[in-house]
Design a protein around this nucleic acid. Sequence first.
DNA 1: CAAAAAATCGGACGCTTGTCCAGAACTTTT
DNA 2: AAAAGTTCTGGACAAGCGTCCGATTTTTTG
Lengths: 203, 203
Amino acid sequence: MNELPAKLRQRNARKRAKREEKKLQIASSALEALKELGYANTSLRDIAAKSDLSLGMLHYYFEDRSDLIIFCVRTYKDEFVRRFSEALDRAEGREQVIAAFSGELVAAIVDDEMIHKLWYDIRNQAMFDDTFRPVADEIEAMLIGIVRKAYRRLDREIPDDIDLLYAMLDGVFRYLMQRQMGPDPVSREQLRRIFERILSQFL
Amino acid sequence: MNELPAKLRQRNARKRAKREEKKLQIASSALEALKELGYANTSLRDIAAKSDLSLGMLHYYFEDRSDLIIFCVRTYKDEFVRRFSEALDRAEGREQVIAAFSGELVAAIVDDEMIHKLWYDIRNQAMFDDTFRPVADEIEAMLIGIVRKAYRRLDREIPDDIDLLYAMLDGVFRYLMQRQMGPDPVSREQLRRIFERILSQFL
DNA sequence: CAAAAAATCGGACGCTTGTCCAGAACTTTT
DNA sequence: AAAAGTTCTGGACAAGCGTCCGATTTTTTG
């Protein structure tokens, strides 16, 4: 009886998977434009041009501009949190946890080509536009989760105001990232030392 | 010989002062629109409508959109820093300095109707658009100056990494401000307690 | 109180934007 | 290989944008 439905379901699943993969591929291209120009200055045409996609394509895979941008941010930030989390998992003992934490932050600034600018851009936009509120809240919760995990990995009790701790670290991260974009960026090592010093205080 | 020039200079000075005053008045109106809609979503027409100004007026007093927005941000942030600074001047002794510092931060969140959203918006925009870079850097320097002043008022030596201290406080301020816009804002007293606790740690 | 200057208005301009769609090109199914 | 379904294209569209400017009103000047 459900012989055909089973086949159909499988087929649909493959279709959906393929579509999802294409969306990821488009998002990856779109991020290139977005991280360079920012939310306010990136039009769909900019994205299409930068990634050799037609304008219609973007609308074929995404509801509208907001949908596309939200998908992009969520995608790359998911990946970031996942990598960060795994790095913490690999660390053993206080020193290694701090080293791993610092290392990931430095990598985010230096290697990710400051793509996190876009995260700050969207988080900011969420203050004015409710469309972005859910994804901003969701991502911020994940980031607080990372700090919580670091505490857990150290067998330290998790403080009540862990969110404020996250907020402090976030402030420092943002500041250093912005400074890194300025006229005198510092070396990878210097960045690492700064983070390690601060984290030693807090963790 | 320079009888007439003197008169002319005086006249011109009055003219310029009047013009400057009008600019401030426009800026005050424009801020109402900007703090509600944010940088990306506020058009000159929005500003004109919200403040009963004609479209042409805005261009009569300001070069272009960026010029207007930069003027707005600089104006209100100047005022903020001035007030903050004076509050620190009035404080005597460690407890009062911390109380004054906290009080000003709380007031900025609760009383200023979160106009500081706009500051974060422009600071962010500066990451993508060089037009806003100078004013963003300038304001950030002033804010670091406030933290420095607090140390000085306590006769404490000013640490080398005072900018990182600012960055932490800024992170917390931004976080609490954003949370205050959410579904469960906390009371003025609670905010004050949070800031006082954190400042006691740092100052 | 004329004449000159400054301030203000509102519409017109050219451009960019997000969105939509008819049809072409390509894949998959029968 | 025909049919059905999916993917992709490029242009059309209205709406909204910043900017500009000639005409009008208000203020200042001699």
